[in-house]
């Protein structure tokens, strides 16, 4: 929210608390009076207060500052041209024209109002990767913020926003954690089967496992993936609901169920190689579903309702059972 005032308001505080309870991450401009207070709503504890820095990463002259700032982001400084591009260092944006709301225009602006959307946009990027819990999103943004040139307490909060680091952190760390948990499930599968798999079977299982849990998240670091397939290749089944239904629908019961593994098993259980892939896929989906129950911070998404937890438990067991029956089938044939 790029607005504010110096006085608290019960209506506004209630609205912010309500939104926060509903899982909204509220990001607000800290204010432009160069003072050490923070304007409302930014000052409410549920809101993230954003101060503004200029090109050289120092606080912009107008920005509010002090210990109550949560994070800093680019807000522009129209008195300087530090990047030497021949223009004042404002934030270029497309909005209604100044003094003529009937027209739109591209203009340079400065203000904490320009800083706050940088943080909101970065939060949206993180959420688009499946980390939707506001507390987790905040943690990612704050922990990847850049070290400021001065003491943080002067008005940088956690530091200066770094969208690239935030996204990389989520892609890499969340991916690695998901793979490790999924591998644990696959090993459990083979331990229960009491027989070591053949190399080709384990490779197929591993491929399916990745598709069901983390996706091939590491591929973009090595090669360019064509845009239409990238989301489905680089993300596990549990994140596919984001592309089809949007980040708000993340955690859709159909994507967090035994539905997809069951259909694939029905189609492919007759052939050895596809069967091994589907077995791994089932174990991968099981690992994601069960992690949502027991390690929600790894997934970054919460399922608060008891009915959701029950759904996850039943489907997690079903997926794992399906995987087990598929790998055991090989012994009989």
């Amino acid at each position: 929210m790029s607005l504010g005032g110096p006085f608290p308001s019960k209506v506004l505080a209630d609205a912010c608390n309500y939104a926060h309870r509903k899982g909204v991450l509220i990001i607000c401009a800290a204010g432009n009076s160069s003072s050490s207070w923070v304007s409302y709503p930014a000052a409410y504890p549920v809101c993230v207060a954003v101060s503004a820095v200029r090109y050289d990463k120092t606080l912009a002259f107008y920005s509010n500052r002090g210990r109550r700032i949560d994070i800093a982001a680019p807000g522009g400084d129209m008195n300087v041209d530090q990047n030497g591009d021949g223009y004042k260092d404002g934030v270029l944006q497309n909005t209604i024209a100044i003094r003529d709301p009937s027209r739109e225009d591209y203009s340079l602006f400065q203000g904490t109002s320009m800083a706050s959307p940088h943080v909101a946009g970065s939060a949206a990027l993180v959420m688009s990767l499946g980390v939707t819990n506001p507390w987790e999103v905040k943690k990612v943004l704050f922990s990847t913020a850049q070290t400021p040139p001065e003491e943080r307490s002067k008005g940088y909060g956690a530091g200066i926003l770094n969208a690239n680091s935030a996204v990389q952190r989520v892609v890499l760390w969340r991916g690695v954690k998901k793979v490790l948990i999924a591998l644990f499930f696959l090993v459990a599968l083979f331990l229960l089967r009491k027989k070591l798999p053949r190399l080709i079977t384990s490779l197929c299982c591993g491929t399916g496992l990745l598709a069901g849990s983390s996706g091939f998240f590491f591929l973009p670091f090595f090669t360019e993936i064509p845009a239409p397939v990238a989301p489905f290749l680089t993300r596990g089944l549990g994140d596919w609901d984001i592309f089809w239904l949007g980040a708000q629908a993340h955690g859709h019961p159909l994507f967090y169920s035994a539905f997809a593994p069951l259909i694939l098993a029905a189609l492919f259980h007759k052939w050895r190689i596809p069967r091994a892939i589907v077995a791994g896929f089932s174990a991968g989906v099981a690992s994601v579903i069960v992690s949502c129950l027991f390690a929600p911070s790894v997934m970054g998404h919460s399922f608060p309702l008891p009915i959701e937890k029950l759904w996850l438990l039943v489907n997690g067991i079903a997926c794992f059972g399906l995987g087990l029956s598929l790998v055991s089938k090989e012994d009989k044939t």
Binding site: S2, L3, G4, G5, P6, F7, S9, L12, A29, G31, N32, S33, S39, Y40, Y62, N64, G111, T112, S113
Partner: peptide, 14 residues
């Protein structure tokens, strides 16, 4: 001084 107003300026009391 407006106690119940806010705006996009955020540069002090209105």
């Amino acid at each position: 001084v407006a106690q119940d107003m806010m705006g996009i300026g955020m540069a002090g009391p209105l």
